[in-house]
Nucleic acid binder design. Structure first.
Length: 152
DNA sequence: GCCAACGTTGGC
DNA sequence: GCCAACGTTGGC
């Protein structure tokens, strides 16, 4: 089983929205590496949910993969913000997975705290400078450390 | 709102 | 295939 970290802007879609919806299509990802990660996901893979572009950026809870990758319908919708006119229906460019709510942490594990733990986290994509990936893989050790930080 | 660090696009 | 211009991400 693999583990991942996925970002969202809470103003667009927050962990509270996911808690309400139970599951959601993780649509709108328009980055090839992030897309490739989603295509490699399996049902049951664990996800650290991260809030970006907000007052306290950080990991806010856990989710899981509930459906493996399939074409992102928003790429074909001209009225959608993420419409991609270059994507063909018989060869869709963008994929998504369905994500299910698992739990919301009692507190946010902030980006600042994660940077403070950089030496224990090892090579963690999230805290590499200039990283803008919205989907990244994490190791079991990194996953467990973040979860233990949330319990403090 | 600023801006650094990217990724993508398109002319050549 | 190079690379400048442009658009986006996301912390601060």
């Amino acid at each position: 089983m693999a583990m991942w970290l996925m970002k969202s802007e809470p103003e667009a879609y927050s962990i509270d929205d996911l808690k309400r919806d139970k599951t959601t299509m993780w649509d709108g990802v328009r980055n090839y590496q992030a897309r490739n990660y989603m295509r490699s996901m399996s049902v049951g893979d664990k996800i650290l949910l991260y809030h970006s572009n907000c007052e306290v950026p950080g990991v806010v809870g856990l989710a899981k993969v509930v459906r493996t990758a399939y074409p992102d319908p928003t790429q074909f919708d001209p009225s959608d913000k993420h419409f991609d006119p270059a994507s063909k229906r018989d060869d869709p460019r963008w994929s998504l997975v369905d994500v299910g709510f698992v739990k919301k942490f009692r507190r946010t594990v902030s980006l600042t705290e994660l940077k403070d733990q950089a030496s224990r986290l090892g090579d963690f994509a999230l805290i590499r400078t200039g990283n803008r990936l919205s989907v990244m893989s994490v190791t079991q050790k990194q996953f467990d450390l973040v979860v233990s930080m949330a319990d403090r």
